[in-house]
Amino acid sequence: MIVATSGLTKRFGRVTAVRDVTLEVPRGVRFGLLGPNGSGKTTLVRMLLGLVHATSGSIEVLGEPMPRRARVVLPRVGALVEGPAAWGHLSGRANLRLLDAAGPGRSRHRRKRVDAVLEQVGLGGIDRRPVRAYSLGMRQRLGIAAALLREPELLLLDEPTNGLDPRGIQEMRALLTSLNEAGTTVVLSSHLLTEVEALCTHVGVMDAGRLALDSELAALRTPTGRVLVRTPEPDAVVGLLDGQVVDRRGDTVTVRGVEPATLNARLVAGGVRVTGLSEERRTLEQVVLELTGSGTDRVDRSPHGRRPEGPR
């Protein structure tokens, strides 16, 4: 396990941000941490990095206890926490050089190292403009470049595609996948389901400070027992299978209670032309919505007229 927590709890005053989280991330995976806003994702990531101290519970990163062994662990971890940050009066390159020089490790090849990570995130041709003049997407790329300095074994990225345009998101996904294939474990948190679905092999879902789910993505996407039929003659399908059709949208008809093979035979026997037939699988969105309540950015009036409680 590259990250292992047990009974991890963090209270800020009366608010419990993270509650009894036991999480295990195997080495070499792409792990996506999902959850609504305010569900405790960022606090969890901050605790893994030793920025926030746990109220109770234990953390191991790269097999070493955190934050006690931070000095040994953190040089092998690259992180992007709650958005990128840089010294606005310096250029991106100067920022990375200073950050590289601030930590432990040798200064040899610093120039080359900085140029290499800038190249990786698509900022290779960057000029001497100060970071304060950068666009949101450029800052995001710079933040990822900073995380990649010193070739980390573990990447902890909080909302890595924030502020990037669709092409940028695609590039970042390709970059993270290739790094992962080269052996880097990637842990990213996001509230974008599609992002996690497209990139990750494992998912964890946080809800109100609890870890509601920790599983392989493939295992989550179980068949729902319904079959999707694509056909140019939807009316004929509805006529043939009346009572079993649960939904009809354009040329796609959703049918329940039949095996795909049996259904296919019946349709063929009925003379209906079929262009596609597939099992319906649960989407990650359905799984997550089943598991989680609304985020803390939504504040409803409680039924008794009292003020609602904050994040539990």
């Binding site: 931070a70 953190l74 040089p75 926490v81 709650e82 990128p84 940050a85 432990p104």
Partner: peptide
């Protein structure tokens, strides 16, 4: 925000 990046540098 640079404080957190300095601290995790570490």
């Amino acid at each position: 925000g640079t404080l957190r990046y300095l601290l995790v540098r570490p």
